[in-house]
Deep mutational scan, measured.
Amino acid sequence: EVTIKANLIFANGSTQTAEFKGTFEKATSEAYAYADTSKKDNGEYTVDVADKGYTLNIKFAG
């Protein structure tokens, strides 16, 4: 089991951190699914992958 950390960075400057656990593939998939659901309210996003994929910096356009 691994933990994927997602740092969500919103257009207004606020941030949120979420953690997803499971296999690398499952946790990563859940992090992207979470970003997709947040996209409806926060606009399109880009992802900067860090820490060999264990940290995702997800920046929303607003």
Rank of each mutant, 00 (worst) to 15 (best):
T46F: 08
Y32R: 06
N42A: 11
T15R: 12
A50Y: 10
G13I: 03
S29D: 09
N57V: 11
T3L: 09
T23K: 06
K26P: 01
V49I: 13
K5F: 10
G43E: 07
T46S: 10
G13V: 03
L56I: 09
N57C: 08
T3W: 07
K5S: 07
I58L: 06
T23L: 08
K21Y: 13
K52W: 13
T46M: 08
A11T: 08
T17G: 06
K59P: 01
S29W: 12
V2E: 05
T15I: 15
G62A: 10
T15Y: 11
D41V: 13
S14R: 13
Y45K: 01
I58Y: 11
K5W: 09
S29T: 11
K26Q: 13
A31M: 03
K5V: 15
E44H: 10
Y54S: 05
D36T: 07
Q16E: 14
K5N: 06
K26S: 14
A61I: 13
A35F: 12
V47P: 01
G53C: 04
D51K: 03
S38G: 10
E25V: 09
A11C: 12
Y54Q: 06
N57Y: 12
F60S: 00
F10R: 03
N57M: 07
F20A: 00
G62R: 08
G62L: 08
T37H: 14
K52V: 06
D51L: 04
S14M: 14
V49S: 09
N7P: 01
F10Q: 03
K59Y: 15
I4M: 03
T3R: 07
K39P: 03
E30M: 14
F20K: 00
T28K: 07
A27W: 03
D36F: 07
T37S: 15
G13H: 05
G62Q: 09
E30V: 05
I4W: 01
A35D: 01
K5Q: 09
T17Q: 10
E25I: 10
T17I: 11
D48K: 09
T37Y: 14
D36R: 06
I58E: 00
T28G: 03
Y32I: 11
V49P: 06
L8Y: 14
Y32G: 01
T23I: 07
N7Q: 08
I9V: 10
F10Y: 11
A27G: 04
L8S: 02
K21R: 14
A35Y: 02
K52T: 08
F24I: 08
F10P: 00
Y34E: 02
K39C: 10
A31N: 00
D48T: 14
I9L: 11
Y32E: 02
I9S: 07
T15D: 04
D51N: 08
E30F: 07
N57G: 03
E44N: 11
F20N: 00
T15M: 13
E25F: 09
S38M: 15
A61V: 13
D36S: 07
G43L: 04
E25K: 09
Y32N: 02
Y34I: 04
A35P: 01
L8G: 00
T3H: 06
K26M: 12
F20M: 02
V49W: 10
T37N: 15
A27Q: 01
I9H: 10
G22N: 06
E30Q: 12
A27S: 04
K26D: 12
G62Y: 09
G62H: 08
L56E: 00
D51I: 03
T28D: 01
V2W: 05
Y34D: 01
A18P: 02
G43W: 05
F20S: 00
I58G: 00
F24K: 08
A31T: 03
E19G: 04
F60Y: 11
G22P: 00
K59E: 06
D51G: 05
K26R: 12
A35N: 02
Y34A: 05
F60V: 01
K21F: 12
